[in-house]
Simulated scan of single mutants.
Amino acid sequence: MAHHKSAIKRIRTEQKARSRNRYYKRRVKEAIKSVLSSQNKEEALENFKRTVSLLDKLVNKRIFHRNKAANRKAKLARYINSLEQ
């Protein structure tokens, strides 16, 4: 257990940040699964737009690195392009 006031506060802030980060990362995983489980190209494109928007927001909040987000967007785009109309 921490003894200093600042260390106690730091533990509290880290717990908040950890739960917030876990929430956002879970949302990204769900969004990616929604794109990959889409049946047709139109549905996949709609889910892709939502996923890209979410990834960009998380890059701005510094939860994801911009290169990691770019890699995920590129991978999803390749998958969508492989789908048939």
Results as ranks from 00 to 15, higher is better:
Met1Gln: 06
Met1Lys: 11
Met1His: 12
Ala2Asn: 05
His3Ile: 13
Ala7Ile: 11
Ile8Arg: 14
Lys9Glu: 11
Lys9Pro: 00
Lys9Arg: 13
Arg10Gly: 04
Arg10Lys: 11
Ile11Pro: 00
Arg12His: 12
Thr13Met: 09
Thr13Val: 09
Thr13Trp: 09
Thr13Ala: 03
Glu14Gly: 06
Glu14Cys: 07
Glu14Pro: 00
Glu14Arg: 13
Glu14His: 14
Gln15Asp: 03
Gln15Tyr: 07
Lys16Ser: 03
Lys16Tyr: 09
Lys16Gly: 00
Arg18Ile: 02
Arg18His: 04
Ser19Tyr: 10
Asn21Thr: 11
Asn21Val: 11
Arg22Trp: 07
Arg22Cys: 01
Tyr24Arg: 05
Tyr24Trp: 06
Tyr24Cys: 01
Arg26Gln: 09
Arg26Trp: 01
Arg27Phe: 01
Arg27Cys: 10
Arg27Trp: 07
Arg27Thr: 10
Arg27Asp: 12
Val28Pro: 02
Val28Ser: 02
Val28Ala: 01
Lys29Ser: 15
Lys29Pro: 05
Glu30Val: 05
Glu30Met: 07
Glu30Thr: 11
Glu30Gly: 06
Glu30Gln: 11
Ala31Arg: 01
Lys33Tyr: 09
Lys33His: 11
Ser34His: 04
Ser34Tyr: 01
Val35Gly: 03
Leu36Glu: 12
Leu36Lys: 13
Leu36Phe: 09
Ser38Phe: 03
Gln39Gly: 10
Glu42Asn: 09
Glu43Gly: 09
Ala44Asp: 00
Ala44Pro: 03
Ala44Lys: 03
Glu46Asn: 14
Glu46Tyr: 15
Glu46Phe: 14
Glu46Arg: 15
Phe48Gln: 02
Phe48Glu: 00
Phe48Met: 11
Lys49Leu: 08
Lys49Asn: 08
Arg50Val: 13
Thr51Arg: 07
Thr51Lys: 01
Ser53Thr: 12
Ser53Ala: 05
Leu54Ile: 05
Leu55Tyr: 06
Leu55His: 05
Leu55Lys: 01
Asp56Gln: 06
Leu58Ala: 07
Val59Ala: 04
Val59Asp: 00
Asn60Tyr: 13
Lys61Gly: 03
Lys61Asp: 13
Arg62Met: 08
Arg62Leu: 06
Arg62Pro: 00
Arg62Glu: 15
Ile63Met: 07
Ile63Leu: 10
Ile63Cys: 05
Phe64His: 05
Phe64Met: 11
His65Cys: 00
Arg66Trp: 12
Arg66Met: 08
Arg66Lys: 15
Asn67Val: 14
Asn67Gln: 10
Asn67Leu: 10
Asn67Cys: 03
Lys68Phe: 14
Lys68Pro: 03
Ala69Gln: 09
Ala69Tyr: 11
Ala70Arg: 13
Ala70Cys: 04
Ala70Pro: 09
Asn71Pro: 00
Lys73Ile: 15
Lys73Ala: 12
Ala74His: 06
Lys75Asn: 07
Lys75Ala: 15
Lys75Val: 06
Ala77Tyr: 14
Ala77Cys: 04
Arg78His: 04
Arg78Gly: 06
Arg78Tyr: 08
Tyr79Arg: 00
Tyr79Ala: 06
Tyr79Glu: 03
Tyr79Met: 05
Tyr79Cys: 02
Tyr79Ile: 03
Ile80Trp: 01
Ile80Ala: 02
Asn81Asp: 02
Ser82Tyr: 02
Leu83His: 05
Leu83Trp: 03
Leu83Ala: 06
Leu83Glu: 02
Glu84Ile: 12
Gln85Trp: 13
Gln85Met: 11
